[in-house]
Simulated scan of single mutants.
Amino acid sequence: MPTTELHWQPATLPDKSTLEGRFIRLEKLDPARHGDDLWAALQGPTSDPALWDYLPYGPFFERSEFDAWLSRHAADIDPWFYSVVDQQTGVVDGYLSLMSIVPAHGRIEIGHVMFGAAMQRTPKGTETIYVLAKAAFALGNRRLEWKCDDGNQRSKRAAERFGFTFEGTFRQHMVIKDRNRDTTWYSITDQEWPALQAAFEGWLAVDNFRDGQQVRTLESFRKR
């Protein structure tokens, strides 16, 4: 069967531009400006130690070790880390990255998602994924990936809520912290993104919240 010509042009790499939302903005990770807030959000007394369970690094018990990790990754091109800044308070509540960046094929992934308590179960977390997904497709990518440990139920539920499509599980894919990791794969394609973008925007709209609570679920905006 003949292949369909795409007249494909490679995607563009992310840059240091700040990505703006209503609740949050995403700034390129800067340890000097963001380090104190990230340490408090992710390692402070109110932080959730389970955040580190499925990551290949952390938790960090010494601030110097944490700062060294931030500095290494702030200099990386892939992954490309962003800090999540609350638009009202200016406080940094977490970080995440674009990674596995393959411009030649238009493939990119959202990963290293670490949201502190101030972001969990709030519109800030959903808007963060929306803003970064929108940016990923604006760069010209054809495919946005989400991968996680098959045992990470929180990450799997999040991927499904955000509209990623389950693609399968890579068995015995990695060894993380001396444990086997089966990796579950999800994706969104550029053809799927316009409808998902409209659903995100409908959910994030001012009139979808009353007294801080959602009127309709994100999933319901995809079922119209």
Rank of each mutant, 00 (worst) to 15 (best):
Q213G: 01
D86A: 08
A198V: 03
R22W: 00
R179N: 12
V175Q: 09
H73T: 05
F115Y: 15
Q43I: 00
T46N: 11
F164T: 06
T12Y: 02
W52D: 12
W146C: 12
L139N: 12
F170E: 07
T184K: 03
K147A: 11
L6R: 12
L98G: 10
A133L: 14
T217E: 12
A75Q: 14
K177L: 03
A41L: 01
L51I: 14
Y82P: 05
T12K: 14
L29Y: 01
G35S: 02
S83K: 06
A40R: 07
T3W: 11
D15M: 02
L29E: 02
A11P: 02
S17A: 10
T18W: 00
F200K: 00
F61L: 13
R33N: 02
T4D: 08
L13T: 02
L96N: 09
G21Q: 03
V91T: 15
T189P: 10
D86W: 05
R72T: 13
Y54P: 02
R63N: 05
G111M: 12
F164K: 07
W69R: 04
K223V: 06
K147M: 13
A195S: 04
F115H: 07
R154P: 15
F170Y: 09
R179D: 07
R224V: 07
A117Y: 03
R142N: 15
Q197I: 00
L13V: 00
S17M: 01
W193T: 05
T126F: 11
T183M: 04
D93S: 10
L26T: 03
Q87S: 15
I77N: 05
H7I: 01
D53W: 03
V131F: 10
A136S: 15
S17W: 01
A41P: 00
I77E: 15
Q9I: 13
T189L: 15
T169I: 15
S155F: 13
M174D: 13
V131Q: 08
H73S: 04
E65M: 05
D15A: 06
R161I: 07
T169W: 04
E5F: 09
E167N: 11
N141P: 10
Q191S: 11
Q197V: 01
R107F: 14
R33A: 11
G202E: 06
T128F: 13
H173K: 06
E20L: 08
G58I: 10
T12M: 11
